[in-house]
Design a binder for these strands. Structure first.
Lengths: 301, 301
DNA sequence: TAAATAGTGTCTCTCAGACAGTATGAG
DNA sequence: CTCATACTGTCTGAGAGACACTATTTA
């Protein structure tokens, strides 16, 4: 793919920028936080009788500076000397969404040497889950160009090999990021290797169209964690409004897990996690559904 | 507890040392790795007929410099400019154990501002699991004073409170660290809070007798992770030699989980993870046990 | 033969998957 | 009445907890 080189506000190309950038002034790595801010929103259906579908959204920011000028990155920034890493993550979260009362969890710290072409950067990634109904207000109109992207995540080419006591499991994760005007995609190869007594999970960036840095790897890691954790914790409720129907809750599980669930089994499974109210949905074009709220007395083992 | 202040090689007390230390030369946090190196070893029984018991061991290093001079810390060190964070962890692991072909996993990154009295330090913790039979050789006779400690971990004062939609769960984790000559202990308070839409797990150091820095918090976190992960992955086999009996395997599970398991259920559960050999233990004073090895074709979901 | 561990058979209970069947409001 | 979704009942099979039972070696 041949491209006309992009120029930043000083009129420099990425190449020129990197030549004038002096990394030697840094003797130790810079520490940044990168935020994976997820929400689930309704996609309106054409038929008034049909329920809206849900889609999983991720917040990305368009880069206005080198490197990766014009590409989309996770919101994030440097950890300053007088704030904790958690606080830096909270600060970034607030600056992008105006909300700070949300679920936030540290995910993984990315410490490869050449992650950032400017200089050595160690990035600590965090996942935040926000309820879109209490959000809507902001995010998407910041000074920086922040936008929500529909996220799809699918596995391909799963391949398992064993040789003696060694085993390896490889697969490709293809992700797409889309909204009204933009479509991006990325492919990450995940390798779970076990050789001798050693055991390791690694991931490689195979392709990244429009996603800056190694952020596609971070996104893959986060979705995997989200998928795992939704099965045995209550994190899904951080994506729900105060009152919700069990069908809505089921849809949130489905869109995160990327598969359909059986209503009867689903209701049994989450029965202890919710409390029923005596309110119902209205004007639905079909039988109204009871509204539930999260049961704070529920506890996972 | 009143103590005579310890002095380092320059003859400075901790207080004097900190006064002469100039943190202003550091504009960004230092990044370190801290290693939690676990193994499981036999504790010999007095009765020849009885099987040896297993105990969970953790490697600690005696600090020879300020701060926390004379206390015990996790092995670790700074991440240099030209190595990845993973590589730094591997380097530390090798320098303490002479082994590098082991299971290693990143755990959590600790980023509070005042973790280290010298200056701002962000520490990335890693867990390594080593098989004691292939170890024995080294570790314990380094230049630095590295020793294995028996680790016990117990929960106390579990307390759950709910107010409206808010819920909190608090408990104390008491840990002891002991070997032939030394006994240390620490207490960590874990708080799982859910207020409004926000949800967070925090831990505080309540008491730390002989464990340096916030390392007791790291240890508590690691044991919790280990306990969780042994239930649904194959990590336990990283603590086993090539050949082992099912009773030995069960003992490793028991010492990590801190509870007894029923043999029949345990054998059913791990049946798919092992392959039987036609070898047996000998001279046991009772019925010989079949030896098994790990089945590399096993996969967890 | 006793002590001690190795290993199996089987009952019960729980829980998830599957699927058929009933319930209900809008138009 | 029909559509579309809400919600329930129940069969099945997998798997964990519990516990009694058999097997095998050495001193």
């Amino acid at each position: 793919m041949e491209r006309i080189p992009l120029r930043d506000r000083q009129g420099l190309t990425e190449e020129e920028f990197l030549q004038t950038y002096d990394p030697s002034i840094f003797v130790r790595p810079s520490v940044t936080v990168d935020m994976l801010i997820f929400t689930v929103v309704d996609k309106q259906e054409e038929n008034y009788r049909k329920l809206p579908n849900k889609s999983l959204k991720l917040l990305l920011v368009k880069r206005g500076v080198h490197p990766y000028l014009g590409q989309w990155a996770l919101p994030g920034g440097f950890v300053t000397h007088d704030e904790s890493v958690d606080d830096a993550a909270l600060r970034e979260l607030r600056s992008e969404t105006n909300i700070d009362n949300v679920y936030m969890e540290q995910l993984y710290t990315w410490g490869e040497v050449n992650r950032d072409p400017r200089t050595r950067v160690v990035s600590c990634s965090y996942m935040a889950l926000v309820d879109s109904t209490s959000l809507e207000l902001k995010a998407g109109d910041d000074a920086a160009d922040a936008r929500w992207f529909d996220l799809t995540y699918s596995l391909h080419d799963e391949k398992r090999t064993t040789q003696g006591n060694d085993a390896a499991n490889e697969y490709l994760v293809k992700m797409t990021f889309s909204n009204d005007t933009i479509i991006l995609d990325a492919t990450v190869k995940v390798m779970e290797k076990k050789t001798g007594k050693s055991s390791r999970i690694e991931s490689d960036l195979i392709e990244s169209n429009g996603i800056a840095f190694d952020h596609a790897k971070m996104i893959q890691y986060a979705v995997k964690r989200l998928r795992n954790k939704i099965e045995y914790t209550d994190i899904a409720f951080n994506l729900m409004p105060e009152l919700f129907t069990l069908s809505e809750l089921q849809q949130v599980y489905e869109v995160i897990l990327g598969k359909e669930l059986l209503p009867a089994a689903f209701r049994r499974k989450i029965a202890g996690m919710v409390t029923e109210t005596d309110q119902f949905t209205k004007d639905a074009g079909h039988r109204p559904a009871r509204l539930f709220r999260f049961n704070p007395n529920w506890r996972f083992i």
